[in-house]
């Protein structure tokens, strides 16, 4: 099937942009056949829409307390019940998805370029550059990521921004390792030797030759790590070091629901299920991306 597409893209009269589009299309055709990946993508898309439209969809103000209707079980009025301050859990879940997606997106945007550049430089230059950069990576990897994030947030103060920084601090080293490993296999290829022979600068070789070839595996790795980012963010929230209490955040919601969990399961269960489904979806997307971007299929 793929072979047919490559041949359709074949005629030499097609400009490169069209060929790029053809490659994207063929990538999409592989991805589309992956049921679990499409399911994950669907869930994440729905979540993104819900997050954007939260003020329109949410039946109640997520911060509105109502001490006459605390800890109500799920009903037609409150789909997911109310918490110990009478706030609507469903509305808080919707607003919480905003925080979660914001954290996921900001961490990915911070982490992918940093990890990529450090890893590619270490792999390409080798020698002492490699030694120094990889020892730094080892130091970060030696500490469990949640502990490192905890320490960082404890030092800087709790809050969503600091949680993002702390998670980013723990998420870049695996990406740097991956980028380095990819670069090591690329840098000995003949086309890199040819580029060195015609006098291309290291800067040009890294950004025009090495980085484009590292991108597929980096994209897969970042997508897979999004699941871990959600869990770490929720963990920080649960420990009271992420988003601060009045604001709706899934981890924080579980943390407050924990006290009443035995008698009023819905307060903790719904944010827990939300975390589960979201991180699972990112994992499914990552797995499907890995298959679709596999060069042996392309």
């Amino acid at each position: 099937m793929l072979h047919g597409i490559a041949e359709k893209a074949g005629p030499a009269t097609l400009p490169p942009e069209v060929l790029q589009t053809a490659r994207l299309l063929s990538f999409w055709r592989v991805f589309r056949t992956d049921l679990s990946g499409m399911l994950g993508l669907g869930v994440v898309c729905v979540l993104a829409i819900l997050a954007v439209l939260a003020p329109l969809i949410a039946p109640y103000d997520p911060y509105l307390q109502s001490l006459t209707s605390t800890l109500l079980p799920p009903s037609a009025a409150h789909f997911a019940g109310t918490d110990e301050l009478g706030r609507d859990v469903f509305s808080r879940l919707l607003y919480g998805s905003r925080t979660t997606l914001l954290i996921v997106v900001s961490v990915s945007v911070l982490v992918a370029p940093i990890g990529l550049i450090i890893g590619v430089c270490a792999g390409y230059f080798g020698g002492w550059v490699d030694k120094v950069l990889m020892r730094i990576v080892d130091i970060f990897l030696a500490l469990p990521s949640l502990v490192l994030a905890l320490g960082f947030v404890a030092a800087l103060g709790a809050g969503t921004e600091n949680a993002v920084l702390a998670i980013a601090l723990t998420a870049w080293p695996p990406i740097a390792r991956l980028a380095r490993a990819e670069t090591l296999t690329i840098r000995n290829s003949d086309f890199i030797a040819a580029a060195r022979m015609y006098g291309a600068s290291s800067f040009r070789i890294i950004f025009a030759h090495v980085v484009p070839l590292c991108m597929p595996s980096i994209i897969v790795r970042v997508t897979l790590s999004m699941a871990a980012v959600i869990l770490t963010a929720a963990g920080l929230g649960f420990l009271g070091l992420g988003a601060q209490p009045p604001s709706a955040e899934w981890g924080t919601m579980i943390s407050t629901g924990r006290k009443v969990m035995i008698d009023h399961w819905w307060v903790a269960a719904f944010p827990g299920v939300a975390i589960l489904i979201t991180s699972l979806s990112f994992n499914l997307i990552g797995d499907a991306l890995r298959d679709a971007l596999d060069p042996r299929k392309g």
């Binding site: 086309f191 580029a195 015609y198 291309a200 600068s201």
Partner: peptide, 28 residues
């Protein structure tokens, strides 16, 4: 300049032939 052994490794897989040929000119 040099011509390498492996025809499959000698060109960057994501660069068009035109780009592969203009890169040396750019570098120089």
């Amino acid at each position: 300049q040099m011509v390498f052994q492996d025809p499959y490794g000698t060109l960057h897989p994501r660069h068009t032939i035109g780009l592969a040929l203009s890169e040396p000119l750019r570098a120089q």
